[in-house]
């Protein structure tokens, strides 16, 4: 392979492919959310645009594009403008190291199969955690810049929540990393060829799921935007595309944390044990596993009430963090033995 293909064309193609897929998934995740929850609540959900309302997300997107972009009079215009951007960029950047399959030829662009990941960083997992911690600023600044009480409360709440839950989230991922002996996302998946890490790391897995829901501000931890308390939380004053950015970031983050869960605990693109005779492409397995997680998100939202703010913090600091620390000790003990 020549230089141009390796360093310019292939990465560009990968980036474009990943981003198109991610954005489409986000779009239809909003549709899926409405449909799935609707069926759980014995109603139909969107039915008007296209067959079974399939074009609803596109209609929503167009609507948001065309909507008037309102900036509150007393808002800090610069911060108000930059907050949604800060929110969405890290969410999308996280996909840089998510391996969506084993190997790919990118529809024949590459002459021999290349790893199905944009960049296989040797600090892959650390990179995701680092970059996603930037996303907090979008919410915090968005809440502050609106110059209104409810958004500010929502912004502060969510920042405190995300900073707190980052700790157990990271600690829960230490277990799989210790077992895989690498931070590379591909490396972690390949280390699970014998056994998925969900079996030895079940404790970390459960904590991770709970923390992931909290980290993405979803029910039952959706306090930052708890509509019955804080109206709409940090994005109360936002409209149009800026609002759409926050919205997209939330769903992109959902996909990111689901992908990490798949990578670290459920064997990434590896087929489900016992079902490998199906010979499905690796990216299908990956998508299926991520899909299970996303469905879980919606299921939880349709089922559970909301925690109170102090209870949420108490669970995070007093329960999840000790449990993950114990899990690290147990893992270390068995690894050293």
């Amino acid at each position: 392979m020549d230089f141009t293909t390796t360093y310019v064309l292939l990465p560009t193609a990968k980036i474009i492919a990943v981003f198109i897929v991610v954005l489409l998934t986000v779009l239809f995740l909003t549709y899926a959310e409405r449909k799935v929850i609707a069926f759980m609540q014995v109603r139909l959900g969107p039915m008007r645009v296209g067959p079974w309302g399939l074009l609803q997300p596109i209609a929503d997107g167009i609507k948001l594009f065309l909507k008037e972009d309102i900036i509150p009079l007393k808002a800090d215009r610069f911060v108000y403008w930059i907050a949604p951007t800060i929110s969405i960029v890290p969410a999308l950047l996280s996909f840089l190291v998510v391996p969506w399959g084993s190997e790919t030829t990118l529809f024949g662009l590459a002459k021999q199969p290349v790893p199905a990941v944009i960049s296989d960083l040797n600090i892959g997992l650390l990179y995701i955690l680092a970059i996603s911690s930037i996303g907090i600023y979008g919410i915090l600044l968005g809440g502050w810049a609106s110059n209104s009480k409810y958004p500010l409360l929502g912004g502060l709440r969510s920042a405190a929540q995300m900073v707190s839950y980052e700790v157990p989230l990271t600690l829960a991922l230490v277990g799989p990393v210790m077992m895989a002996n690498t931070l590379s996302t591909r490396g972690i998946v390949e280390a699970q060829k014998g056994m998925w890490f969900v079996v030895p790391q079940i404790l970390a897995f459960l904590v991770y799921i709970a923390c992931a829901v909290a980290e993405t501000n979803r029910a039952p931890y959706d306090l930052p935007e708890a509509e019955t308390e804080l109206v709409a939380g940090f994005h109360t004053e936002y409209s149009g595309m800026k609002f759409a950015f926050f919205y997209l970031a939330e769903y992109a983050n959902m996909i990111v944390v689901s992908s990490i869960a798949t990578i670290c605990f459920l064997g990434g693109w590896l087929p489900v044990p016992g079902l490998s005779f199906l010979h499905l492409p690796s990216f299908v397995w990956f998508a299926l596993k991520v899909g299970v997680f996303l469905f879980g998100y919606l299921w939880i939202r349709a089922t559970y009430p909301r925690y109170r703010y102090d209870q949420l913090m108490a669970i995070g600091w007093k329960f999840f963090i000790p449990v993950t620390l114990i899990n690290i000790f147990i893992t270390a003990f068995f690894l050293l033995k």
Binding site: I123, L126, A130, S133, I136, L140
Partner: peptide
């Protein structure tokens, strides 16, 4: 790389918050 990640995680992600 490690230093870069730590820089993001600790300074950009933690302290500035």
């Amino acid at each position: 790389e490690f230093l870069a990640a730590v820089q993001l995680l600790v300074y950009a992600g933690g302290i500035i918050v």
